[in-house]
Amino acid sequence: MSAILIVDSVVKASDGNSILAGASLRAVPGELRALIGARGSGKSTLLKIAAGLIPPDVGSVQFAGRPYKNMFHKDIAGLGLFFVPDEDLFSNAWSVRTQLEMIREQFNGGDPDQAIAAVGLSDEVKKKPDQLSRAERRRAEVAAAIVRRPRCVLVDEPFRGLARDDAADLTRLLRGLAASGVAVVVSGSEMPDLFAEADRVTWFTGGRTQELGPPSAAIRSPQFRLECMGSYSAPVSRVAVSGRR
């Protein structure tokens, strides 16, 4: 299937410092893509450019065949892109249920109760986000994506600060989102479970990206293993042994 989001050779600098030096990204419907790189390396900048939050200095970005150098995130969101930032998406002013209802009303989206049940938050639905744990807030954001029924979801660093079990749960939910036909891109630096579950791996290093293919191919890159996978041998073994991709 062809990519719905195409970011090509994007360059971005801030205060004279190069952040992106020719980074590219693809998001394909039904595919879970892991954007892996060291913390603070510029992954968030790449995702923000992909979402239309900030413009690139050089390079092209297009969503659903429409280039949008001069389009804003709100316009691209209307076309079916959903961005989950590395900070909380939801406002603490209203309950999770209310905000899911806002999304449903705005886009004639899915049933909030079903989405809440799917992410296992039925008992917490009337709480405001600041009354939830970090892991619960991340799951609520996946519920938001389920209600929105987007064509593409970009999730920035969702695993930061999560316990291993919570990260595995979140990965499962993101995997389910991709299985429903949504193009999912998830960035992170510590993502053993996501690495094992991803369909494709994009390695972000030195302001550039490298397409490494499926995880089983990615682990054959010595530099990638050295930089990103050193402390996570278990998932790597799982990929290698199972040979599922």
């Binding site: 995130h73 709100k74 969101a77 930032p85 998406l89 939801f90 406002s91 999304i103 705005q106 929105r148």
Partner: peptide, 8 residues
Amino acid sequence: TLLHDLGI
């Protein structure tokens, strides 16, 4: 960001 995700 939430508002922009809502297209507003």
